[in-house]
């Protein structure tokens, strides 16, 4: 795939998510705390889950870009890695708005087992999106095939930098469907 097109696509999604997150942050507190069942996440916990997961890629990309981006020549072609592509397309919502398979969250990404969530979680989400947008600009100047980032699936699975952008954005899209469902609930 062409890197410039990929960047434009990811940028549009991230900007839309940021705008929606700002609207959601202004909603009454009770809407943000609604749970479909006592154990299920509310909107704030979904945002915190996204922070825990996307944070891995934002920090990983920032680190590897700072250290190594300059040592590779710009390359406008990106070939997704086998695992990176498989996980990303598996997450991606289907055209009809459904999801392909359900997944269980690892404990380390479950806000209810960590430090809880608050309005602050939405603010930090917006900040993570901004950092991804800055990283996307830097992506033009290097080779996304050559740089690698540890994935949120554990230290054994490392994604190519291009997949380290695609995965969190697809993951966020998937959870935005959940957020809209939660907000539409009575």
């Amino acid at each position: 795939m062409k890197v410039d097109l990929m960047i434009e696509e990811l940028r549009a999604v991230l900007q839309a998510q940021q705008a929606r997150a700002r609207e959601i942050a202004a909603l009454p507190g009770t809407s943000l705390l609604k749970r479909p069942t006592p154990e299920a996440w509310n909107v704030l916990e979904v945002f915190e889950h996204l922070n825990l997961s996307s944070g891995v890629y934002v920090r990983g990309l920032e680190e590897v870009f700072a250290r190594k981006a300059a040592s590779h020549r710009p390359n406008n072609d990106f070939t997704p890695g086998v695992l990176g592509d498989w996980f990303t397309t598996g997450l991606e919502p289907q055209p009809g708005g459904g999801i392909k398979w359900r997944m269980r969250t690892m404990k380390m990404f479950d806000p209810a087992r960590n430090a809880g969530a608050s309005l602050e979680s939405i603010t930090r989400f917006i900040d993570f999106c901004s950092r991804l947008l800055v990283l996307l600009e830097k992506a033009r100047t290097t080779d996304l095939n050559k740089l690698r980032v540890t994935s949120s699936l554990g230290p054994i699975i490392r994604f190519k930098a291009g997949d380290a952008f695609r995965f969190p954005v697809a993951h966020q899209r998937r959870h935005f469907l959940q957020i809209e469902r939660l907000l539409a609930m009575d």
């Binding site: 507190g29 704030l44 430090a115 809880g116 608050s118 309005l119």
Partner: peptide
Amino acid sequence: HERAFTKGAHI
């Protein structure tokens, strides 16, 4: 301003 926190969150 209204501010929401989930169980376990630091205020």
